[in-house]
Design a protein around this nucleic acid. Structure first.
Length: 305
DNA sequence: CAGTCCTAGACACTTACTTCA
DNA sequence: GTTGAAGTAAGTGTCTAGGAC
């Protein structure tokens, strides 16, 4: 069943964007990333041939789009001018025992499991990161093989690692130590190679300046958030004061009405109340001017004081 | 050569899982 | 045992460079 396809056949040529499909959809490169990540032991082209049968093989050119839901691959094709959707059950793919284990969840998306990278893996990744903050595909593949991880996991680790040391806005020199992270992993110590460097002081100085700038930035963020919280607190205090005052006023009115002793209170029957669907105000049919603000009424604005 | 389409990689932001106090 | 915070693997949306046509 499996046969290598000529490159010119371009089985994954997408005529439309996968995003045009409803539900969970993947653009092409994401689908490939997913496939390579989870089915790296198989060739994606031949897998499609295997799964969809020989009849479909000839139609691979006309793939419209595809998307994944759980482990189901939906392939939208363009046959005879009309759209047709094929459902490819990945459960039927020849897969490893690990995959089969994951797939035994009755079709629903399995709970997201979190991989914990071992210390040794982390150390090697840190070493690699220290040498280069980005990986080319070959390096990624080699590292993945060496660490017994999926290439996608290496990719994600490097992305997160870059993000954790300055969001990629600035880069450490290739031989500089990575930032130490909470909980360790040994990322913060100099290697023997660094110790022998003649420009070590200079790099340390640069690193300290960058750290200082980062600290200033973080402090600034904290200050602005604190300021915002203070303003919100002040606002809520004023609102509370306003409501308290309103409450007192209403109590006084009730007392005054009781003092007037105007006979039995006239209770408005529920049937005579109407609610405006737009402003959600409850009014009586007789006196729409006595509108009662609903609970969704916004708190008083700054300008009201 | 310019324009268009597609791919793949990167980043920012977010979510969700795990660990630990 | 429970809970909340912190750390972090992974998901998602978007942008961009580069190659093919």
């Amino acid at each position: 069943m499996e046969r290598p396809l000529h490159v010119a056949e371009r089985p994954f040529h997408v005529l439309g964007n996968a995003r045009c499909l409803p539900g969970i959809s993947l653009p092409t490169h994401r689908f490939k990333a997913y496939f390579n990540s989870n089915y790296s032991h198989m060739d994606s082209h031949s897998t499609l041939n295997y799964s969809i049968n020989g009849d479909f093989t000839g139609k691979l050119f006309t793939l419209g789009s595809y998307y994944l839901r759980s482990r189901l691959l939906f392939v939208s094709t363009l046959r005879g001018g009309g759209r047709e959707q094929l459902k490819l059950d990945m459960n039927q793919l020849p897969s490893s025992s690990e995959d089969n284990e994951e797939l035994s969840h009755g079709g629903s998306a399995p709970p997201r499991k979190k991989l914990r990278i071992t210390r040794e893996q982390s150390r090697l990744l840190e070493d690699s990161f220290r040498q280069n903050h980005t990986l080319n595909p070959k390096q990624k593949e080699a590292l993945a093989k060496h660490l017994m991880l999926r290439p996608r996991q290496i990719e994600v680790w490097f992305q997160n690692r870059r993000a954790s040391c300055g969001s990629g806005r600035w880069r450490l020199p290739p031989s500089s130590p990575a930032f130490p992270r909470g909980g360790g992993g040994g990322g913060g110590s100099f290697s023997s190679a660094d110790a022998g460097s003649s420009s070590r002081e200079g790099r340390v100085l640069v690193l300290m300046m960058k750290l200082s700038a980062e600290v200033k930035s973080v402090n600034s963020t904290i200050r602005s958030k604190l300021k915002q919280t203070e303003m919100e607190c002040e606002y809520l205090k004023r609102w509370f004061g306003s409501l308290t005052e309103q409450n007192h006023r209403l109590h006084r009115e009730v007392e005054e009405l009781r003092a007037m002793n105007v006979g039995p209170p006239t209770v408005t029957s529920a049937s005579s109340l109407t609610m405006c669907p737009r402003c959600e105000r409850v009014t009586t049919a007789a006196s729409p001017s006595l509108a009662i603000p609903s609970q969704k009424t916004l708190p008083p604005q700054e300008s009201e004081h």
